[in-house]
Amino acid sequence: MIEIVTTGALATVQDRGRDGALKWGVGSSGALDDLALAAGNILLGNDEDAAGIEIQIFPFQARFTADCVFAITGADCAATLDDLPLPPWWRQTAKAGQILNLGLPRQGAWSASRAYLCLGGGVDVPQVLGSRSTQMRGAFGGLDGRALRSGDRLRAGPANNATKHVSFGLSPPALDLPLMAGDLPAVRVLPAAEYDQYTEAAHHALWNDVWRVTPQSNRYGYRLEGTPLLPVTPIETRSHGIVPGVIQVPPNGQPIVQMRDAQPSGGYPKIGVVIAADLWRLGQAPIGSRIRFIRTSWDDAIAAGEQTARWLAEARRLVDLHCGWTRSH
């Protein structure tokens, strides 16, 4: 269905993640901006476990080798289909031979760094251990367990309604569900096991300082830079299971937020955890940008997750109404 014409590195096939394989040492993988991937699938009437392509190096070009309905979400990349400009967060039908081009992410009302290309019916790669996400460390899942290269061809599954030549878009959740602290994007954090073993100065810095996203940030982890977070006395922990969002603090005091390709266990002390409902915000934070942490409570964290779920459900309802589709479930 599509052939990759040019890609920098690190474009991978991702779905919403691989659940239930932690006990074999297999991390979750999955889209860093799970909300953008979900919205792309909603625009196309896809199942919610459909896979798309996560793109983080631009420009990116793909040629459609067959007629195909597709959606682009995530970072606003001045997308064009041949010479037709496409708005961000958009669904469009392409004819065989047309070329989709994604340029450098535009920095504006929302600065983001990862784009998602979804295909009607989803990217058709085999499910491995229950997911189509690329598991880089294990070299399985996605397309042959690796990042995409020029010349790679990907098929789409059977589209929900491939004949509908209808274009439309969604307003990005960054605008509908904004979260800022002062003038900076923010994510909500729950304190973790070793929080109380850090100094008052560390607590103050965590909640009040600005954290810079360093160039050593990637799908494995976001290495942040700011006031060093130091424990009252050195902390020893035994290896234990961890999840994306855990904020580990190595001895140098510079926190690392575990992301979707993080290993499923670790031994560094944990000062907090970015709540699941906000991980997409961090996943879109560009290298060099600055963020803040907001302390939250269990109830507010649950409410944040419900708010996101409501946004997705409402988007699906509106898209269904607009398309007049009926689904069997």
């Binding site: 729950l190 304190p191 973790a192 096991a193 073993q197 035994r238 234990h240 299971g241 961890i242 999840v243 994306p244 969002g245 855990v246 944990k270 955890v273 970015v274 709540i275 699941a276 409902a277 269990w298 964290a301 649950i302 997750g305």
Partner: peptide, 24 residues
């Protein structure tokens, strides 16, 4: 920190961690 009571802590909203007391 070793105590005689297990410790339970949250890993955000995704998981919780149970730590047994005592030496490994």
């Amino acid at each position: 920190m070793i105590s005689d009571q297990p410790r339970i802590s949250l890993l955000g909203t995704s998981a919780l961690l149970f730590e047994a007391p005592g030496a490994t």
